[in-house]
């Protein structure tokens, strides 16, 4: 098994955090994993991305030329990375901020993650709604392991942050299951 994921969005949308929680959960499940962030002068409003490779064998290249899955949170990122997914790969798209016109040969799963996050009470959890949808489709990371990672990473003593992230994850999964 090898799963190569590229995650991209605007600086500030929690793209790096999304990659990190996936990598942390994969490690806890006993997988080999590599997380490679773009570390250039990324700014709020521009594009920011990271690459996560999960495998049951040692990972060679941390760099991903063609991904099995793209998680895209805004339109500039879609433009930049739409050519980086394999034929019949998966595209998880934030339809609040990106349009999927002119994309073919890819399985597209799109929901308005940003709008959903606002309804849940915090725009910042759009990334975790997208993560929920990804987990529901790919089933490489178990939800309970992801929630353990949330508990590990969330600032201590702020139960509300943990709660809204779990809600966001569940909502993303529910949408993907239809």
């Amino acid at each position: 098994m090898i799963e190569r994921i590229i995650i991209a969005g605007s600086g500030g949308q929690g793209v790096m955090l999304l990659g990190k929680v996936i990598a942390e959960a994969a490690m806890r499940q006993g997988n080999y994993v590599t997380y490679l962030p773009a570390y250039g002068p990324e700014v709020r409003g521009g594009t920011s991305h990271c690459m996560v490779t999960i495998s049951d064998q040692e990972v060679g290249s941390p760099y991903i030329a063609k991904a099995d899955a793209l998680i895209i949170l805004n339109n500039p990122s879609l433009e930049r990375f739409k050519g980086k997914v394999k034929n019949n790969g998966l595209l998880i798209l934030n339809s609040s901020l990106a349009k999927s016109d002119n994309i073919s040969k890819v399985k597209i799963l799109q929901f308005p993650f940003t709008d959903i996050a606002i309804k849940l009470g915090n725009v910042k959890v759009a990334n975790m709604v997208a993560l929920g949808s990804y987990l529901a489709v790919k089933k490489i990371i178990q939800t309970k392991n992801m929630i353990e990672v949330f508990k590990f990473m969330a600032p201590a003593g702020n139960a509300r942050i943990l709660e809204i992230n779990e809600m966001a994850l569940a909502e993303g999964e529910r949408l993907a299951h239809g």
């Binding site: 990190k20 080999y32 994993v33 490679l36 962030p37 990972v59 760099y63």
Partner: peptide
């Protein structure tokens, strides 16, 4: 190199 410095692994 920068990749080794920045990437995360177990």
């Amino acid at each position: 190199d920068g990749i080794l410095g920045q990437m995360m692994e177990p």
